[in-house]
Write a protein that binds this DNA or RNA. Structure first.
Lengths: 327, 327
DNA sequence: CCTCCCTTTGTAATCCGTTACATTCATTAT
DNA sequence: ATAATGAATGTAACGGATTACAAAGGGAGG
């Protein structure tokens, strides 16, 4: 592959001029420009990004940190990220951490090494202390999971309110025994959703029973199945269940379907992943604007890169009522 | 961030020596090495990948081309790719083409630009002509979708055989009217699965009815729903359906569930995505070793990069029988 | 004590674009 | 015709690491 010198030579100009043509700088005579373009076509030249990146000290890559892509929730956000990134001439470096700290280290180093110009973290399992350290010197945006009152800008929804609305909806349908399938409460979103759950129960003077709160290890379907099985074994069974993720909720539906007698238990999920409309019954859930969140995260990151002031954003969610809460 | 010169100065050695320490070259005195390491720690130095990459003329990045990550089939392959890539000090550049040629161009240029050292394509919609052109000068591996008799090495399964086995299984269960929900037959896998479908029917002397073959626009659930609706409107309804993707099959199940009278129609999918075990009824499907496919694709690519001869691999699949074919 | 040889270390070229600054060229005003 | 002005182009330094080759250091043998 040819380099810029060869083009310059072939076109009978200097490398500076070639560079100017490449970057559509002004001040290049049409005649010169066409000479250069000719040479470029002739030699089939493509400027080396490696050289350019070194010189410009940027990689035009965005690191996207997430625990894993098996949860469709992330796929849709990534879609938004990718679209906006490409539109701005950036590429995304996908990093599934699998919640392994050693992977995190690898990726954080890539940022320090300038292999990525900024980071969008959607990983609730991220080591926030390290991330904050990184954010002191590099642009970082949190997407979905965030840190309250922290220094890193985020784009998210109001999880507490959403959970409150979900549970209120269940109560209004006549459910006095509402269980919560929550994930590990080391995650902020889990604490917030629990808090919303409790607020609604208190508001209606319903008792808070600790047996009705189940904590899962992760968000896999199977965890939802297991959680629901536990709840179904209780002496006093809940009549409704709020799961903090659609994947868990779908698992819960499965467990209910497997139960002899098919007990009628209302189920609500969270995220509105595309599957949630395919289950039987279809799943009532909270819709997050995932695509938009991805787009905004990139825009915020780009602003941050330009050293502009970036404010956090809380987007609107929506309760999507489907069959799983319609008896 | 410090550079190698500053380390050299601080440690009182030359840049060459620092570089040797960084790359654990032999022939560095323990004393010198510790001096250098000291300086590195002192200044918190991280070697710049940009400089290194330029010099080495490699990016240690692998481009992964796929139509989109919304289909969980791809997520699992990516997981395998990522694990193996990281183990070999590579990173993956995720490229959802959304089946848009202009995106493809962007990404192909990245390879020419050395922003990626090789390509793993899982995109059936890829422009094969361009990809082959690219493969002449750069390492390329096809994963899942491939080209028969083409020059690019691939890792895949025997789709024709799998489809044949699926349909045979359905026939043995007593189904004489087996429909096929296929995707666009411009894709090789679609042609192969159809071919397997036809082979089984012929073997049992069953008629091939063109009304029983439905072609979808893509693999979204909704397409499966629509396909099944069409099939249910036929005068002579099929008693079983083979969908070439779990997502389509799940849509088909949905459509059947929505139908008044809940007709009993056997359904088989393809891919064994994790959700296929959560549907009601659970879905009979063909399991592809997705994780392994991803791992192998990377290993093949690494071999190719070392200019070793790389043979294509056809992996074993497995028919997973679940409730959707159990009456 | 000197030479030879091997190991460790240093020097400088190289990878490829970008851009500040210098230079050339053409045009307009005087 | 000449100076002044501005536009177009060229020169060379620079970003940060790697490595071929050169040089220096150290030890052994005579």
């Amino acid at each position: 592959m040819a380099n810029i010198q060869q083009i310059a030579k072939k076109a009978g100009v200097s490398v500076a001029t070639v560079s100017r043509v490449l970057n559509n700088a002004t001040s290049v005579t049409p005649k010169t420009r066409s000479k250069v373009e000719h040479a470029i076509n002739e030699l089939n030249y493509e400027p080396s990004m490696l050289g350019r990146n070194l010189r410009n000290s940027e990689s035009r890559q965005i690191l996207v940190l997430l625990p894993g892509i098996s949860n469709p929730f992330y796929s849709e956000i990534i879609n938004g990220i990718q679209t906006t990134a490409i539109a701005n001439n950036y590429n995304i470096l996908l990093c599934e951490t699998d919640s392994k700290p050693e992977r995190e280290n690898i990726y954080f180093n890539m940022v320090k090494n300038k292999l990525a110009d900024g980071v969008i973290s959607m990983d609730p399992t991220v080591n926030m202390k390290k991330l904050k350290k990184l954010a002191e010197k590099h642009p970082v945006i949190l997407c979905s999971e965030y840190e309250k009152g922290g220094s890193i800008p985020y784009v998210t929804i109001d999880s507490e309110l959403a959970a409150y609305q979900v549970v209120k909806h269940l109560i209004r349908l006549g459910n006095e025994k509402v269980a919560l399938i929550n994930s590990d409460e080391k995650f902020l979103y889990a604490r917030l959703r629990r808090s919303g759950y409790e607020r609604a129960l208190k508001e209606f003077n319903l008792p808070l029973k600790s047996e009705w709160i189940y904590h899962t290890k992760n968000l896999d379907f199977q965890q939802g199945v297991q959680a629901m099985r536990m709840l179904l074994q209780l002496e006093e069974k809940p009549s409704a269940v709020f799961a903090v993720s659609d994947t868990l909720a779908i698992g819960a539906l499965k467990a209910i379907n497997l139960e002899p007698g098919h007990p009628s238990i209302a189920v609500v999920g969270f995220d509105n992943i595309s599957f949630s409309n395919m289950t039987n019954p279809t799943l009532t859930t909270v819709s997050q604007p995932m695509h938009q969140m991805g787009c905004l995260a990139v825009e915020m990151l780009l602003s941050k890169m330009k050293n502009e002031k970036v404010d956090s954003i809380v987007l609107e969610h929506e309760l999507i009522i489907r069959e799983s809460t319609m008896g």
